[in-house]
């Protein structure tokens, strides 16, 4: 039987300052890579997936480490990921409906 639980603020492992700075370095490198990719014409054909992977990595790093989602209660991940999935579904649907399956424009 689960009784009410006292709120414990910092029971979980939190990364320390060194780890935070290391992650910041990684984020910096990725950002530099993103901008660099933008200026390399020969990468144009694959720029979309490349940029998406790079920014998804940054996104994940901040969420997992700076927002502690990796170490925190799974309920929080649940909320956030459910919102994220719904939003991603909506955006994907919009792209599909408006740009891939769209009826011809009348302009």
């Amino acid at each position: 039987m689960s009784a009410r639980v006292p709120v414990v603020e910092h029971a979980e492992h939190h990364p320390g300052a060194t780890e935070y700075i290391r992650i910041a370095l990684v984020l910096t490198v990725i950002t530099a890579a993103e901008v660099a990719v933008y200026y390399v014409p020969s990468l144009r054909p694959v720029i979309m997936p490349m940029l998406m992977v790079l920014s998804a990595t940054k996104f994940a790093l901040v969420v997992m480490f700076y927002m502690h989602l990796k170490f925190d209660n799974r309920l929080f991940s649940g909320f956030f990921i459910f919102g994220l999935v719904c939003a991603a579904f909506m955006i994907t649907a919009f792209i599909t409906l408006f740009h891939l399956l769209s009826a011809p424009k009348a302009f």
């Binding site: 649907a93 409906l97 769209s102």
Partner: peptide, 17 residues
């Protein structure tokens, strides 16, 4: 969250959608 466009079947969604 996955069914909304059934309100729009007559807008010309195309057969796949």
């Amino acid at each position: 969250f996955t069914v909304w466009a059934h309100h729009m079947f007559t807008t010309g969604l195309g057969p796949i959608a």
